[in-house]
Simulated assay, not measured.
Amino acid sequence: MNKFKVFFTFFAFLWLWLCGIGAIAQCFHARELAWLGVLMNAWALPIWMLMRFLSPQKYAGDLRESPAFFAVLAGLAIALLADAERGWPVYLSIYNLFIALLYLHHFSAVAHPQMPQIDEQFPDLMLLEQDAPDKSALWSAAEHCEGENSPGLLVIFLRGPFCADSRRCLAQIESQRAAFHHRGVDISVFSVSGSRWPLSCRQQGGLPPVSTLDTGATENHLFIAPGAAPLWAWGWQCDAVRPSYWLVDKEGYIVWRALPGNYRALPSLSSIRDQLYRLEE
Rank of each mutant, 00 (worst) to 15 (best):
K3N: 09
K5F: 15
F7K: 06
F8P: 01
T9R: 06
A12R: 00
L14H: 01
L16H: 01
W17K: 07
C19L: 03
I24R: 10
H29D: 05
H29Q: 11
E32N: 09
E32I: 06
A34C: 06
N41I: 04
P46A: 10
W48R: 02
M49Q: 04
M51C: 13
R52Q: 08
R52C: 01
P56V: 00
K58M: 02
G61N: 04
D62F: 03
P67Y: 13
A74K: 08
I78N: 08
L81K: 04
L81I: 09
D83H: 00
R86P: 05
P89Y: 06
V90K: 00
L92G: 00
S93R: 13
L97P: 01
L101M: 00
H112K: 13
H112L: 11
P116Q: 05
Q117N: 03
D119L: 09
D131I: 10
A132P: 04
K135Q: 04
S140F: 03
E143K: 10
L154E: 09
R159F: 12
A179K: 15
R183F: 08
G184S: 15
D186H: 15
S188C: 09
R202G: 02
R202V: 04
R202K: 07
G205S: 00
G205A: 07
P208M: 07
T212K: 11
G216F: 11
G216Q: 09
T218Y: 14
N220I: 13
A225L: 09
A228D: 14
P230W: 11
A240K: 14
S244A: 14
W246G: 03
K250N: 12
R257T: 11
R257Q: 10
A258T: 08
N262W: 04
Y263D: 04
A265L: 02
S270I: 12
I272R: 07
L276D: 02
Y277A: 15
Y277V: 15
R278L: 15
E280L: 10
